[in-house]
């Protein structure tokens, strides 16, 4: 079942093109990794997908899901490093995309937050302060927040960029199990090509223009795939 379709997408900053003639799609249950070097348009594409930036031309179409029902996990900002917030406050803020205005979080919101903390096995952190956690724990908290915002589609922006190798592989494991066991569709922007090939089902390789879009099996046999994996 199709979840997202992009056709002939063009995006730019002022006059500098960031993304050219991009077409791709995401089906329910996919695990798509968007790879490419710095400045290849990965983050721009995410902004487009999330509605944070308008494309110059082309279409971004969600099917059976609205833009607001996407669970987004942005990169950490420097502001957050010493931000006084409890883990529960951070996770609950993922519930704010729900329809209907309310002054305080309801019982359902709290239950959802508790459930997602359990899913990511960080229930014991609920009362802790966000800024006192380790990098890996903080990423799990942000993932729990994103899970509160969605049932179906997670979009992650370089989630392992600041993690040590152990925390990185643990994090990939968590994302993989969300994809496999809870059938949550994943779109992940990543630098880490070898991890992408190991975990994902599809690859989109960008260099302002799309270099490759298709399954992992096909990607590893293309020239660009071989070059990226150091086998060529």
């Amino acid at each position: 079942m199709r979840l997202l379709e992009c056709s002939d997408l063009n995006m730019s900053y002022e006059t500098v093109p960031a993304l050219k003639d991009l077409s791709f799609f995401v089906d329910a249950g996919d695990y798509l990794c968007i790879i490419g070097e710095n400045g290849s348009g990965k983050t721009t594409l995410l902004k487009g997908l999330l509605g944070l930036k308008e494309p110059d031309s082309g279409l971004i179409e969600y099917i059976g899901i609205t833009k607001r029902e996407v669970g987004y996990m942005p990169q950490q900002t420097t502001i957050q490093k010493d931000f006084p917030a409890s883990v529960m406050e951070v996770v609950l803020s993922g519930c704010l995309n729900r329809e209907g205005f309310r002054v305080f979080y309801g019982k359902k919101d709290r239950e959802l937050a508790v459930k997602n903390l359990e899913t990511l096995s960080i229930s014991d952190l609920a009362g802790k302060s966000y800024m006192e956690l380790s990098g890996g724990q903080q990423q799990r908290v942000l993932l729990a927040r994103a899970l509160c915002a969605t049932q179906r589609l997670l979009i992650l922006d370089e989630p392992t960029i600041s993690l040590d190798p152990v925390a990185t592989s643990a994090f990939y494991g968590v994302v993989k199990s969300l994809n496999r066991d809870r059938n949550i569709t994943i779109i992940m922007v990543s630098h880490d090509v070898s991890a992408a090939v190991q975990n994902a089902s599809k690859i989109l390789h960008l260099e302002t223009t799309p270099l490759f879009f298709g399954s992992v099996e096909d990607y590893v046999n293309t020239d660009v795939g071989k070059r990226m994996l150091g086998a060529g």
Binding site: L50, G51, L52, K67, R68, V70, Y72, P74, T77, I79, Q80, F83, A85, E89, V90, L92, S93, G94, L96, N97, V103, F104, Y105, R145, A149
Partner: peptide, 23 residues
């Protein structure tokens, strides 16, 4: 402040996430 305190938190903590949530 009382009516919007949750949204104020969201925007202060993470503006991009808040935007994506439709705030």
């Amino acid at each position: 402040y009382i009516v919007f305190h949750n949204k104020i938190f969201a925007v202060t903590f993470d503006e991009n996430f808040a935007k994506a949530s439709g705030i």
